[in-house]
Design a protein around this nucleic acid. Structure first.
Lengths: 209, 209
DNA sequence: TAGATTGTTAATCGATTAACAATC
DNA sequence: TAGATTGTTAATCGATTAACAATC
């Protein structure tokens, strides 16, 4: 890693690069220049080179970038080759959908368990992930290393649940409730999927097109 | 509306303002200054006033903003008082979860129908929304006004489906597949929910904290 | 009236783009 | 070697913050 402070704008572009490089790989493309990549992604070649140069020198003058190699580098930066451990809290429709379809392992995550209050699902498993009772949550966290908690619970209990988890040492949250979580505890990271915010921006754009 | 070109950065903050104002409303707060609002939301008062001033003059010197009124104004800008019509394509786990739990009507959307290929769900209804066969899709679109299509389908068919819908005149897409959709047709709007991109940025941050 | 707070203009800061020497 | 393309420095552009006159 070269620079100390990478801006959020850069970080949020990395998964898109990674996605596109995966596609190039599967198309059998071996090398690509910042110019071609930029054209395909509607980004300037300058920005691409600037972005990459935050993390190292991955190209070669006169040649460009080796697709496979660059993909591996960016994957590494994003941590897809890590083995992060994750649990889910709340196995309703959405939690269920994620357990069933989301490629956690491709993102470097292992889902160790899911927790819910409903007796109907406790004791069952979804896609190999055991659904446990919320009463087992504290013990589980104390005896396992949990990097990220997926919050697919009702809004009403979201902040309280997060506070409790933070007090148990959890530092990463993937938050699907449409509220703004916060914490005074340093180093706690929230990543939010705000469905409603997303749809409202679309609503704005279709009305002001 | 005052200015012509509102930047994306501003537009993406609007739903957050709206959300916070709703909360203030339900807490019974009647008025608020840009300074207090900024403190609560961790935004500078300057930015708040700049953002609002893109759309009009909603405050009063010496007083601040009336919460209820400001909420209504921003809601109006975002179009929550519109009656947009929406259909969903793909009623798997995720589509099902959205139909069941997402407050479409609070965002100004009516869900008129959902479409799927699976005979198991065709003919049923989820939360009052009828699930139709994909074979009925073209006729439906031609006979109804459809502002937004929710794409909760497999990645593999996403771009083809989108292209087909665009040829039928659809201009708005709420895309849940983790691919970058695009179109040459002008005025077509894509709003993406890229779950994997989101989790990967979290992965980056927990590794580089 | 005096104090508070707006909307807006000006200043600053950061991010994007352009230019170019280095070099494969 | 000549052409292509990098990584990086400099220039530009846009977004955020600060300042302040207007005024409730």
């Amino acid at each position: 890693m070269k620079k100390e402070n990478i801006s959020d704008a850069v970080i949020r572009r990395l998964p898109r690069y990674y996605r596109h490089l995966n596609e190039l790989c599967s198309r059998g493309v071996v090398r690509i220049s910042s110019h071609s990549l930029g054209q395909e992604m509607s980004i300037t070649a300058s920005q691409i080179r600037q972005d990459f140069s935050c993390f190292g020198e991955f190209g070669q003058q006169g040649y460009g970038y080796n697709v496979e190699e660059l993909k591996a580098e960016i994957g590494h930066i994003l941590g897809v080759d890590n083995d992060h451990h994750l649990i889910m809290i709340g196995v309703g429709n959405l939690g269920h959908a994620l357990l069933q379809n989301f490629p956690f392992s491709q993102c470097g995550f292992t889902v160790d368990a899911a927790f819910d209050v409903s007796p109907a699902v406790i004791g069952t498993a979804v896609n190999g992930v055991p659904i446990c009772s919320m009463s087992e949550l504290d013990t589980f966290i104390q005896s396992h290393s949990v990097d990220v908690v997926v919050l697919t619970i009702p809004q009403t209990v979201a902040q309280d649940t997060a506070d409790h988890l933070i007090s148990l040492g959890v530092k990463g949250f993937w938050n699907f409730t449409n509220i703004e979580l916060s914490s005074q505890v340093p180093d706690v990271q929230f990543e939010n999927i705000h469905f409603a915010d997303s749809l409202l921006t679309l609503s704005y754009r279709i009305a002001n097109r």
